[in-house]
Design a protein around this nucleic acid. Structure first.
Lengths: 364, 364
DNA sequence: GCCTATAATGACACCGGTTACCAAAATCAA
DNA sequence: TTGATTTTGGTAACCGGTGTCATTATAGGC
């Protein structure tokens, strides 16, 4: 490996600014800027950090020198002095790549052109020592903050650990879990309600629901919203038409098979699934049973994964603005630090995307 | 913000070890360890960095104290002194969430229990100032190294910039782009060849190919492998049966429509698509044309996305061990730094996953 | 025009490690 | 036993910023 040139550390930057510099250019430091602007390094530091204790003309002068020489403070040095890094952690256990990538992009939308970086950390909440590992991660890296999407966001113990570690966090969840300043809410129940209303409006009355696992709070929310949507049309959910799946394809198939084994008079004419993955499982079961979608069975999913629009017939589903949520979460995190002011709760409402997997029930 | 307790900085760690410490515990530093182990901080530093210049019993003693007090060196402080952070960057523009998440997980498989962290950086290679931004990112953060999956991996200018910045990198690509020490190879041509052979073995002779955009090297590789697979069975690719898609669903639909508009005698009985996304587009077109899959048309994809196994009929496709590739890439990166020895090129071979979208051609 | 209150600025130690360099101790040869 | 050589450990300076507090400019009050 080419050793860095041992040239004078405090050399004038103009000296090597002209050189095409094959070797890593010796970076401009705060000392260089201070000397060139004829102020102390502390003043430069104040300018960097937008301190109000700098006279306007001094600030301008320093900023000019900074711009001229393309200076950017060293994140590690700042982190050391601040006792806090500029890293934001995304801790997740969500199995959907779509969700994760969109969330990341949203967060990065906010982080772009700031000095923060995103560090990702997938995890298994059931693994032994999970909490200890996260704690170590957060303390070790002195994270600026972390973002917790579902279902890690539902882990109160984790939140407490972060609190203890003095690490700011933002939870993204469908229910109120924490004080509002830490929360990005998704009105999951509202999306489910829309789904139920959509089906009821089409004329369905025997509408089944394959809910997600009861260990996920989102699945309770969705169920509640679904019930409410039915109630809006005077329909009460038949206990026999509610099954619990595992948010997986296979569980969708299995639950659907149970519904489809019912006598035609009792069989549901529509199914609302807790997520798209299970909805696609229902397609599978319907196909095997020789049923037509949406003619014999209307299906609604939740999430609007890419699969929803690719499958045949395209799936009517509920879309969450995941990327926007990520963006908002990162904004909230940074705001929490920069200003102490009260932040009002931020909520996102899903919207139903009507495609071709729903239709009027066949007259029978 | 709760101020950190101003207690004696050099206090015995045992003092606060017992306290339940609601406030951020004042961390154990190298100085504490040095004092407790009755050696100099330099010696502790040597132990941390596995320097051979420490007597065995001294090393043991220091290690014991480190373990007892749960000391871990501060990454930022080390980064500052090392002039190199412990962050590994993943720079990508791959649009497939599946690919990205698996790659991340693979990298993290390697990074787990090391002091390295993964920083993600999606990008748009066509955006103005792309190279400058990446350069800034890499130099600013003093990245330990970066991993470049396709298609950023195909950017030679980017590689040169990283070289200049003195930032180690590993490219993941289907072709030899660089000296082998920087490369994880995927034998894309081999996967395509398997696909072609699979279809030829079933008895197809009019086999079409919807290739990816020619700006992606992978699409050339796959085309070449496909040709070779046909040649293995004495079949030559008919120029009319080759179309260029954009790796998107819509382009898959469009290309398939062209094929299906051909007179039955000339129409292909099978299509090999450059990726699953386009393959699913072919399903769509076939359905609209009233053709049955695989009876009237066999389809093979590439990537084995989750959709491949969910769609009906399940798609025969080619699987790349993406997670393993990510793992290997990270290993290579770390190895490059720790040992100077020659690294032999690492290659991964895809495998065909036979499902139900392929069958013998209908006798006609 | 002088004195004090306040705003700007600077000096210096420090964050938690590392490297450079030197001193001390241990080992070895004569 | 002594001196040369190898290990090993210690000290000081440094990486590039920030905090604290003293000091110096500026402004306002009389």
């Amino acid at each position: 490996m080419a050793k860095a040139p041992k040239s004078t550390p405090g050399m004038k930057t103009s000296t090597n600014a002209g050189a095409p510099a094959r070797a890593p250019r010796s970076r401009v430091t705060i000392n260089d800027i201070a000397r060139l602007a004829e102020v102390s390094k502390k003043t430069v530091s104040r300018v960097i950090n937008d301190s109000p204790l700098v006279r306007e003309d001094t600030r301008e002068k320093v900023k000019a020198v900074i711009a001229e020489h393309g200076f950017a403070p060293d994140p590690q040095a700042r982190a050391l002095a601040f006792r806090r890094s500029f890293l934001i952690g995304l801790i997740y256990d969500n199995p959907s790549p779509q969700y994760v990538v969109n969330m990341q992009r949203g967060i990065l939308d906010t982080l772009e052109d700031t000095s923060y970086q995103l560090v990702v950390r997938p995890c298994d909440r059931a693994a032994p020592g999970f909490h200890a590992k996260i704690r170590e991660f957060v303390e070790q890296q002195k994270l600026f903050g972390v973002i917790l999407p579902p279902s890690v966001s539902e882990d109160d113990q984790l939140a407490e650990i972060l609190e203890e570690a003095g690490c700011p966090y933002v939870r993204i969840a469908s229910v109120a879990l924490d004080e509002p300043r830490n929360l990005i809410r998704t009105h999951d129940s509202d999306g489910a309600r829309q789904a139920a209303r959509h089906l009821a409006r089409l004329g369905h009355t025997r509408i089944a629901h394959i809910r997600g696992p009861s260990s996920f709070r989102s699945s309770h929310e969705r169920l509640a919203g679904f019930r409410q949507g039915l109630a809006d049309f005077g329909i009460e959910l038949d206990g026999g038409l509610l099954l619990e799946g595992g948010y997986t394809f296979d569980s969708g198939v299995a639950c659907a098979e149970k519904f489809l084994a019912m006598p035609p008079a009792k069989r549901p004419t529509a199914v609302f699934c807790g997520n798209d993955e299970m909805a696609v499982g229902v397609y599978q079961a319907a196909r095997r049973a020789g049923l037509e979608v949406p003619g014999d069975l209307s299906i609604v999913g939740y999430d609007d994964t890419p699969m929803a629009s690719r499958i045949w017939p395209p799936l009517t589903t509920v879309r969450l603005p995941i990327r926007d949520m990520g963006k908002a979460a990162a904004e909230l995190l940074i705001l929490k630090f920069t200003q102490r002011g009260e932040t009002k709760p931020i909520a996102f409402t899903p919207e139903i995307v009507e495609r071709n997997s729903t239709a009027k029930p066949r007259k029978s």
